[in-house]
Design a protein around this nucleic acid. Sequence first.
DNA 1: AGGTCTATTGGCCTTTAGTCCAATACGGAT
DNA 2: ATCCGTATTGGACTAAAGGCCAATAGACCT
Lengths: 207, 207
Amino acid sequence: MPSVMPKIFIVDDDDSVRKGLERLLKSLDYRVQSFACAQEFLDQASVKGVCVLILDVRMPKFSGLDLQQEMLRRNMSLPVIFITGHGDIPMSVRAIKSGAIDFLSKPFKEETLINAIEQAVVKSKGLQKEYLKYQAIRNRINVLTERELQVMKWVITGMLNKQIALKLGISEKTIKVHRGRVMQKMEVVSVAELVRLTEKVGIKPSS
Amino acid sequence: MPSVMPKIFIVDDDDSVRKGLERLLKSLDYRVQSFACAQEFLDQASVKGVCVLILDVRMPKFSGLDLQQEMLRRNMSLPVIFITGHGDIPMSVRAIKSGAIDFLSKPFKEETLINAIEQAVVKSKGLQKEYLKYQAIRNRINVLTERELQVMKWVITGMLNKQIALKLGISEKTIKVHRGRVMQKMEVVSVAELVRLTEKVGIKPSS
DNA sequence: AGGTCTATTGGCCTTTAGTCCAATACGGAT
DNA sequence: ATCCGTATTGGACTAAAGGCCAATAGACCT
């Protein structure tokens, strides 16, 4: 596999800080993209693959903590490392509770940042892996018809074909047909596997 | 249900702080038990039901953070609220990353502590609920014989009786018998349910 | 109008799962 | 020595799952 270096996003309104971080990180072979404000990042950044966000807390209008909340709201899960000149404990508590990897006060040692980035990269790799698995399953679910999805949700309750037929008001034979297609499309050969797949993507059994 | 008030443990080496907190919390009807050091808490506290730990960071010998780590190691999952007179950001980051509910610097407003406790109680109730479910399942698993457990781990892979028989080098008939007993003892009527139960307690399918 | 996708159902047949009854065998406890 | 729990297996039988072929019907697209 052609493992690309992780991408590191920097969002900081201070030009000199951005430049400095950019230089440091590029010297370590990371791919770097920086933004002067949160909105710019949300509009332009393409968060794909393994990536990390280095985020300044204090910025005009849209603070770093606001950006973090907005990313949570949008289900964007990339690890965040906060940096700040004037941080306090409640601020750091909030950041970490919202999932940040670290919260560094300036000035900090280069090594500290590098360590945090390493942690974030590991986390991102994990998230990436989960995301790919998730998508692989979702793709299969997307080719199910409405009816098939419906039948699947009953099948994973463990109910008998006969009972499902009753629930849906159609014949048992038809359930068997749908059920067979579900197994094909989901690429499984047993209900056990089907239950596992649906659990992973959060599909709940009916009723 | 006779919902008892949550129990709040206090671990702080400062007598006056313990007394003060104790008075405050008792006035709010919480059940309170305090300890002057971490070891005393580990030895004597009975962490059952809904409970919360208010923990001083700086203590002689065994620090609050050390106690938190020790509890993680022992799989004791009760929500922790740190309080400290001389905290810093890295300290709070470490505490929260290890799962603490909050990290309060003295002096703090009573209200702030009360809020944190409310959060912690909610969390503890959630943990308690999960724990009870977990135990209910574990209790059933504990009445399985070795052989039955072994068969169950193959059943939840979705394998056919025939295939399991081959794996274990015994007849298919015997698998059916064990399998039947597993379903009885686990109190389920379908493989789907069995898969769900085993997932919840972290039992992995064989091979 | 013809083609495609989907839902529906039937018949036929095979494979699996699971239950009841019965029997053998081994190890440990009384 | 005997009883109990566990593992093992067989026979017989019922029920459930699922595959193959075929057919009908409605919706939607070209």
